[in-house]
Design a protein around this nucleic acid. Sequence first.
RNA 1: GCCCCGUUAGCUCAGCCCGGCAGAGCACCGGACUUUUAAUCCGGGUGUCCUGGGUUCGAAUCCCAGACGGGGCACCA
Length: 553
Amino acid sequence: MPQRSEDLFQSRLAKLHHLRAQGLDPYPPRFSRTHTAQQAIALFQQEEAQHGAPWRTPPVRVAGRISALRAMGRATFLDLRDGSGRLQVLLRQDALGNAYALTKDLDLGDFLGAVGPLFRTRTGEITLEAQEIAILCKALRPPPAKWHGLRDVELRYRQRYLDWMANEPSRQLLVLRHKVVQAIRRFLDQRGFVEVETPILLPVAAGAFARPFVTHHHALDRRLYLRIATELHLKRCIIGGLEKVYEIGRVFRNEGIDNRHNPEFTTLESYEAYADYNTVMRMVEEMVSTVAQEVLGTTCIPWKDGKIDLAPPWQRLSLRDAVRERTGIDLETASDPQTLGEQMRRLGLAVDPRASWGKLVDKLLGEKVEPFLLQPTFLIDYPVEMSPLAKRKPDNPRYVERFEAFAGGMEIANAFTELNDPIDQRQRFLEQEELRRRYGDEEFDRLDEDFLLAMEYGMPPTGGLGVGIDRLVMLFSNSPSIREVIPFPHLSWSQEELLTEVDKHLQRLAGNGQPMTAADLYQALVASLPEEVRSRLTEPELRKRVEDFLRRP
RNA sequence: GCCCCGUUAGCUCAGCCCGGCAGAGCACCGGACUUUUAAUCCGGGUGUCCUGGGUUCGAAUCCCAGACGGGGCACCA
């Protein structure tokens, strides 16, 4: 595989062998350090203040990755970087003796331990003068360029560790994400919520609008799906008597990838018995603003060219009013697909004539309302057709007690007073199944018989909430793309992966010793390659690969 | 699915319009240098110009097809 960068690799390999030849272990099992880079610098500053300059501390032990190397004959400066920061190390032949020869085998990216006193150089930089050094790990590939860093977006995502090595903001984003999740947990834990872990592999993937991923359990010989939501299991917890539960976890939706969608993403869902969507609304604005305050130190955050103020209370706007204000359409009168579709066409929207009313409302919201909700806003009371798990409004059964929260034009939360009438719930599921049949749309929700069974035992009135953690982190970090905030985002095949896959098949096909003609081998290859690989390569490309393969010794 | 842009050395990028020996900085390799800081100085270019096909005496450059990435649209929570 590593045909690229072969020379750099070989040069480092040679140094590795040279180290071994001298009886040094390039990968020793341990090195005990007494100070991080930051602690070492703090120690020096403290002692210098006490004793006055010039001052040398007693020896300290530090370790880190070599991030810069400035060699000048019998003295070498290098920068060691660890999790806390950077410390300059001076290697001098006079101080190190024979060990100084090791310097020649060091490269950027290697891990090194150094022992010695701290002092200030002529130019004033706090520096460790090494009396002892130990290579802790020989790196066989070079780190990204020190000056330009790593800009190539594809490389940044495919080899995220290089991104983190080279780009401080990317590292910080990971930490920010952690702090957000931590602050959410703290918020909920303090309110008596219990965190539970519900299954990811399910016989029925229900609880949201999405196509699921399919997998198979061999021992059970059963088709299973990856969950698209945690909702139905968390409600089972409520049924079982836990009154406040939540889960922060990954859900999987088999859909396209873009700036706001990754096929796996993290949601928070919480359920609280004896709460309703009004209770949840207050909790959401308090939670998001509290998290912002704890993590960012303010509730007023920059977003694109403007600012968003997350301090409660957030604006509350009924969905019907919001649509009427922005489009002039009244959903009460435009209450069938034909009328609504007609009015939407008049606004210049492309309308699928077969779309259901709920889908049309959804599209109208997505096009004409949501993108304009920059300051945090609750959209309240959704049509029942779009919300099969929410309780109807007592005074208008065509609507449900549901809200979605928006900020920066993105949906960040979705919540409702949960439906706990098992007969209505069954009816709603059946309607979803019917809609899926009628519209051939895989994304309608699914009937979950096991969940209905649970609900028939009785569920207290409950307020439920879903929050997209990734989008919340996008908001908090002013990131335009969800890929930035997901440590390892999904990408398609790279050219190298494809060709490696082809070669694997070629080796297997040609492996039984019998000589094959290029034409035969090509035929066998096409028959053997999975469609996902074959379809990404053209016939001439594959034929060429076969010929190259046969030409190889 | 559609449109636009990109893909050249390990990294960041120029060269492409108007076809003529594949370039720069950093990194790397060899040499000098015991307080440097993007160290400096001398010497060295290390390449499947994304892939495949076509036009041409000649293609990184022009044409066609495709892959991957980015952006937009469509679709979608």
